[in-house]
Design a protein around this nucleic acid. Structure first.
Lengths: 118, 118
DNA sequence: CGGCATCCGCATGGATACTG
DNA sequence: CAGTATCCATGCGGATGCCG
């Protein structure tokens, strides 16, 4: 059964744990090498998950894997136009995330204020 | 350890399976009753998951639960301003999802074309 | 350098039955 | 009508080790 809602479909493609960080890093600097990407993400991603995520992003047409066929291996990853089109949406999600966060902070401090008044 | 990236934070809040459909339905028609919402989503969501999702969305400040304290029970769910602020982002994700989908279709038909040429 | 193979724990989500 | 309470399956993601 196909996925009819484009939003749900987008969430499926972007929703796994490391996809957004990867795309975000490639937006900052396109054409990064595997290990450079890994270091930028923070080194807490395993090789397995990084490779898996990159292959899926490639299959979904968001990035392109460029292999120089050298020894030692040299592979770079680039955003496709489709991948780059995510920039605007990312910015909006970023802004909304900050709003969400400050909203939560506000609620927390309200609870603290409530305690202080006792 | 807090979540420092607002985008990743947003994805955590919106990422579970039924959150987006729920918000989307409330955008179409705000103030829906529990069972009406359930029917609109398609009846394949269980009571357990719907309740769980609604409670989490409420805790995150995206929706408000309004209980009329009647017998029989009458409960409606409304989007908060924060929830409504998602509309623009949703629209962009919708457009991008369609782009993503047509991109995939194109690749599929290319494969078919390739086969046809043999 | 840029991966892949394997095993495994745990969280997410589903099925079913029951209730104020 | 609007939920709860349990139990259970699956799959995502992590840990570790090996490879061309």
């Amino acid at each position: 059964m196909p996925e009819y809602c484009p939003i749900t479909y987008s969430m499926k493609v972007l929703g796994s744990k490391w996809k957004i960080p990867i795309i975000f890093k490639l937006m900052i600097e396109d054409g990064q090498h595997y290990n450079h990407l890994k270091r930028m993400i923070g080194d807490n991603i395993t090789n397995f998950m990084l490779t898996k995520s990159l292959r899926e992003l490639e299959a979904d047409g968001l990035i392109i894997r460029h292999d120089d066929h050298q020894v030692p291996p040299s592979v770079t990853y680039h955003l496709t136009p489709l991948g780059k089109d995510l920039a605007m949406t990312m910015n909006q999600l970023f802004d909304w995330g900050q709003e969400l966060y400050s909203n939560k902070e506000k609620n927390s401090s309200n609870s603290i204020d409530h305690l202080k008044q006792q």
